[in-house]
């Protein structure tokens, strides 16, 4: 009885969450004539499904270039973020020094500073560095969004490692650095995965910064590229837009399909500790 009630309660949620994605999926396979037709049932693909929109975005639009740019930016930002965050989290979790605790919370709170507050002054900073209109501008901007939360997640994982473990390593003559590479990183691997996923998702999904700083199509990343280039005047190419949005979401979905549990554990550690 209780179980059946759960299923009934879940149906509206299921429809609510899935419908927009389903709509995106079927539109991407519909022919242009069917997309702009008022005949029949729009909730299903009625005529023969087509791959025309996918062909077009891959061969006639710059999607492959944006994909490459997104990939380069995301990979580099994730690497930068992880090196900075691991080092900071290790120090804040283990080396009790003056002001280390408020410092940890302070770093975390910077995570709450929203991009809408920063994009105008960042424009100036990016300009001073001569990085306007290049994807490299994102390399210095994104870490400000990823480092705080990744550090916070890692502090949680590092603090949970029993002190006996590093005390034993210390007695054996390990330096702080060796302790990090031989004890902390292997033991906190789930935390490293969660933090990496977080950095990856945030970098992949960011929209405001590339929209504000990059105007050349060759330098653009996926999110802003799809939005600025595939929308041409008053005629909307919904088939292409939906296909591109799906393709651009795919990498994140694939990563989560395999590693979702790590992310959830990290997210919860981050919010409840």
């Amino acid at each position: 009885m209780k179980v059946r009630l759960s299923y009934v309660a879940l149906i509206p949620f299921l429809v609510f969450f899935m419908f927009p994605l389903y709509w995106m999926l079927i539109t991407s396979f519909k022919t242009d004539t069917e997309i702009t037709s008022l005949e029949g049932i729009p909730l299903i693909i009625q005529s023969k499904p087509t791959l025309a929109h996918y062909k077009k975005i891959f061969f006639e639009e710059k999607l492959p270039t944006w994909f490459k740019n997104s990939f380069i930016v995301t990979t580099l930002v994730t690497l930068i973020t992880m090196s900075i965050s691991i080092s900071a989290a290790y120090a804040l979790a283990r080396m009790r020094f003056f002001g280390s605790q408020p410092l940890g919370i302070g770093i975390f709170l910077t995570y709450l500073v929203p991009p809408t507050l920063l994009f105008i002054p960042f424009y100036k900073v990016v300009g001073i560095l001569g990085l306007l209109n290049t994807k490299w501008s994102l390399l210095i901007i994104y870490p400000t969004a990823t480092v705080p939360f990744c550090t916070w997640i890692l502090i949680g994982y590092f603090s949970a490692i029993p002190r006996q473990l590093d005390e034993a390593a210390f007695v054996d003559g390990a330096s702080y650095f060796q302790m990090l590479t031989r004890v902390f990183l292997p033991v906190a691997t789930p935390g490293l995965i969660a933090a990496t996923m977080f950095a990856f998702t945030v970098s992949w999904a960011n929209f405001l910064y590339p929209l504000a700083y990059i105007y050349r199509h060759d330098e653009q990343v996926l999110t802003a590229g799809i939005y600025t280039s595939l929308i041409k005047g008053d005629v909307y190419f919904w088939g292409e837009l939906m296909a591109a949005a799906l393709v651009a979401s795919l990498p994140v979905v694939v990563v989560f399909a395999f590693l979702m549990d790590y992310y959830i554990a990290g997210l919860t550690k981050g919010t409840i500790k």
Partner: peptide, 27 residues
């Protein structure tokens, strides 16, 4: 630990100072 702690936190602190605190004030 104190010196090393500061050293390890320094990259994060510098990043947040230059690219977060400064832009906030600039804004």
């Amino acid at each position: 630990p104190t010196f090393l702690g500061f050293l390890f936190v320094a990259p994060a602190e510098l990043l947040l100072l230059i690219f977060l605190a400064y832009p906030l004030l600039l804004g």
